[in-house]
Design a protein around this nucleic acid. Structure first.
Lengths: 214, 214
DNA sequence: AAAAAAAATGGGAGTTACTCCCATGTAAAA
DNA sequence: TTTTACATGGGAGTAACTCCCATTTTTTTT
């Protein structure tokens, strides 16, 4: 019987150490390694491929999303469990599409952590309330009038707005008329259900299009 | 030699458990109790007054700020250490003024945690980089031309803007003319160095006047 | 291949959201 | 007591929008 090799990446020492201590109490968990960010974790994986990785989303250097993408591209056999703080719906949907194997809230009980680890190792996917909630809201999105899936152009414009560019600056940079800019902006506002730039920036933050550190 | 009684409040199980595990390795730390939010912690304190408490800022029910206020009012002899995620300058300055005894980042090393606990127990205050940084930014605020210390009215208006209220709605609610609203808004923009609502919302997020979950 | 839907573009006309500069009373510092 | 910050407001002009409409291209569905 070979035990599971698990790597964890989280920049917060307490979370990391707490998780390691917990993992060591589980029967089927063997070697545990730790990393403070995505790059460190990828370096560990490069040396020896683990059975599972546990990833925080917000990390310096390389965040959980980019790390997941890299792992799925290069090491598809590794099970990925995402550690979340809040339930960032849209981000979670993106991660599910990307192919991660499960989600755990940082306030999860030890039993759930164990269940999640074994589910990913044995069945390839751990479905819990976080996933259900995200999927439910995803259904809502695609049936309701105000769908939140932005087109590439809209995303581009959203990001430029978030950089504090004026309408004139954006339209000049993109070589389109201000009219077109405003049309795009209105469409974005409609899709995300906001009234103006305030709601737009909040959407960007909540969907991790913008980071707190930037 | 009586050991230190420490209570910890944090809604994230991993952080809490990790901290408890760490505290148990320290020589001078005796009994450790835990709570998932401020109210639970206050209930514990009511029963037996501890030497130190370690508080997370973001918690359900009662957050770290309100909990600190309550403890300082009712149990001034208790040492308060705040556990922070990012370095929320404005919030930290408020907490220092309130009278908390120290700050620890969640990614702090075990050695620093031990140092901080003993410093608060022995000298009543633990001064580290987090505090220095907050104080420095506070000095900058009061000497530089573009001061970022908002007046109460300005803060009120900033928050209403962040709730996606229109200028008309804000001025109606506050019973002031739209002119006055715009004057306040301009002053805010000047102080925080922003061009419009985009920068304003970003400022609110970065200074934790707004939370990602909201 | 044909039809439909979504994406990207732009205009006319009107309203709202601002900016810049100025001014006043009041309260708190120096 | 003279500053300095705070909260309030006006006049006049500009930039930032909204609403409704229309065209072309690309992508998806049938």
């Amino acid at each position: 019987m070979n035990k599971l090799k698990v790597y964890i990446a989280d920049d917060h020492t307490f979370v990391r150490k707490g998780m390691i201590r917990l993992l060591n109490t589980f029967d089927r968990i063997g070697e545990v390694k730790e990393a403070a960010n995505g790059n460190e974790l990828i370096a560990l994986v490069k040396k020896t491929i683990p059975d599972l990785v546990v990833l925080d989303l917000e990390m310096p250097e390389k965040n959980g999303f980019d790390t997941s993408k890299h792992l799925i591209d290069h090491y598809p056999e590794v099970g990925i469990l995402i550690l979340t703080m809040h339930t960032e719906e849209v981000f979670i949907l993106n991660l599910i599409e990307l192919g991660v194997h499960g989600f755990l809230n940082k306030s999860a009980e030890p039993e759930e952590v164990e269940r999640a680890l074994y589910a990913v190792a044995d069945n390839d996917f751990y479905r819990n309330e976080i996933v259900n909630h995200a999927l439910r809201s995803g259904v809502r999105r695609s049936t309701e009038a105000s769908s939140a899936k932005l087109s590439p152009r809209e995303l581009e414009i959203l990001l430029l707005i978030c950089k504090e560019l004026t309408p004139h600056e954006v339209s000049t940079r993109l070589q389109i008329s201000e009219k077109t800019f405003f049309n795009h902006r209105s469409n974005i506002l409609g899709k995300i259900g906001a009234r103006g730039n305030v709601g737009l920036v909040k959407y960007a933050y909540q969907n991790h299009l913008l980071e707190l550190s930037a």
